[in-house]
Design a protein around this nucleic acid. Structure first.
Length: 212
DNA sequence: CGCGTTTGACCCGCGC
DNA sequence: GCGCGGGTCAAACGCG
């Protein structure tokens, strides 16, 4: 429940700066909750809530980037200057990681429910409320850092995620989610909504708001 | 004993 | 066809 408090109390200040002043969740306007099926923005952006409270250790909020082909940019951190991408369905979203060639070549060729983002963190694994089981580890060609593979440990849910340190800046952790959870988070998280006028985020409640 | 991690092997797609 | 690189499997192992 602490995550909900964090979101509510800290408002936009607790959210990644890029998301907040851009008035758009990083994977499409207002679609943060739609990406993970019924999941709230808090689950998609674990660092926004958990990092702000300091509950998850020495991760930092100062740099948080979402990387997707919808708003692909030549360099990290520059997407804030691009116009908001049009709304799309989750299935159409193809995610790319501009900085990681290993991701780019693969992600570009496959249309899937994927989203990747970079978080400056000392922690390798970010607690996003779900229970993950590690099933593989690989060293990637263009990076000195190994890539770890996780699968959602909930039965019947085959969501996967990959975690690796940025090859250029090891202080960043690149996380890519793939798939849509078909269950709720083991830990309850409030839904975050976005105020149309101010663009600020706020806690909308325990359930996805009606009409969305 | 159940669950999660580790780690080498295996598989598959792709480029040459 | 072959080699390479990325992704997954699964047996062994560790831990609570």
């Amino acid at each position: 429940m602490h995550m909900a408090v964090a979101l509510a109390a800290a408002d936009a200040a607790a959210l990644p700066a890029a998301m907040a002043y851009r008035h758009q969740p990083c994977n499409g306007g207002g679609s943060a909750s739609s990406y993970f099926g019924s999941r709230p923005a808090a689950a998609l952006f674990p660092s926004s809530a958990a990092f702000g409270t300091g509950l998850l250790g020495p991760a930092h909020l100062d740099v948080f980037e979402c990387l997707s082909s919808d708003e692909r940019v030549p360099g990290a951190g520059t997407f804030a200057t691009t116009p908001p991408p049009p709304l799309r369905t989750a299935a159409e979203r193809v995610v790319d990681v501009p900085d990681a060639e290993g991701y780019s070549s693969h992600a570009r060729s496959v249309a899937a429910d994927r989203v990747a983002f970079r978080v400056r963190s000392d922690e390798e694994v970010l607690d996003d409320g779900y229970k993950w089981r590690k099933y593989g580890k690989k060293s990637v060609k263009n990076s000195p850092n190994p890539r770890n593979y996780y699968r959602c440990s909930t039965e019947g849910c085959n969501v996967k995620k990959r975690v690796e340190r940025d090859k250029d800046d090891p202080s960043y952790v690149v996380t890519m989610y793939e798939g849509v959870h078909n269950h709720v988070t083991p830990g309850t998280i409030y839904y975050a909504a976005q105020d149309a006028a101010s663009g600020r985020f706020f806690v909308a409640g325990m359930h996805q708001p009606a009409g969305h």
